[in-house]
Design a protein around this nucleic acid. Structure first.
Lengths: 126, 126
DNA sequence: ATTATTTTTGCAACTATGTTGCATTAGCAA
DNA sequence: TTGCTAATGCAACATAGTTGCAAAAATAAT
């Protein structure tokens, strides 16, 4: 059977993501965990954390891939249909968990997942 | 004064984007215009076309940057608050110009622009 | 039509981001 | 303690995007 192992890298990376108020990029993790592990390891740990459903992946308006801890998801079949707010000044991406946009798709389109990112200024930067 | 020039590269790139039904990536343009101009030129032409308001930029759910012609925008101060549909099978990104999601931001957030991409299966692939 | 001006291009070099193969290390169960 | 295999480090590679600079091409001026 395929086991999941608890390693230093995985623990530190997950901690870092969970302690961050905003979504973090690979480069943020790398900068924060300087020396703990290799670049490549970070990519692989992120992959695993995603698969285990402990974090989710967000692509911000600039195409930067970021990761955030899952707070509201009870199981690994989570949905992330809420809005992500991307501040143009401080560049922070925050999950606005409670907000769900309403819209209708044209006929014959089958919806699977949504990625809503709005940008502007966050309360701190406005 | 700073003039805008009509060049072969610019014309061909704009034509290609306008003739595409779905949004195109830099790599699509490069593959289609093989030999017409340099990679770097494509980046620079795209930048100019964006600034001139002839095309708009979309980041798809996988973080791939794509470009689409502006059909519904009369002027360069266009807004692209409509939904982009990203097909998980054929990977095509289409603008659903007529659909505008409705939502409310929490207080103190200032909205500037939105980026709504939904994914699933398009009519052809469903 | 020719020249002058300035935008645009090509090329080389570079940075950032992400992936893969493989040998080594380290978790964990027996 | 040992054996299995997941996880890591390293090197190498792939792709996306940027920058500086000299040469080429578009347009304006003559």
């Amino acid at each position: 059977m395929k086991n999941v192992r608890k390693t230093v890298a995985k623990t530190k990376i997950l901690e870092f993501i969970q302690n961050s108020k905003a979504a973090v990029a690979h480069s943020d993790i790398q900068a924060s965990l300087k020396g703990v592990c290799d670049r490549v390891t970070i990519y692989r740990v992120l992959e695993r954390l995603l698969k285990e459903g402990l974090i989710h992946k967000i692509v911000d308006v600039d195409g930067v891939v970021k990761y955030a801890a899952c707070h509201t998801c009870e199981n690994k079949f989570h949905q992330h249909n809420h809005i992500h707010f991307s501040c143009e000044k401080c560049k922070k991406v925050t999950c606005l968990d409670t907000i769900m946009p309403v819209f209708n798709l044209p006929q014959n389109y089958i919806l699977n997942s949504v990625n809503f990112t709005v940008s502007g200024f966050c309360p701190k930067c406005k």
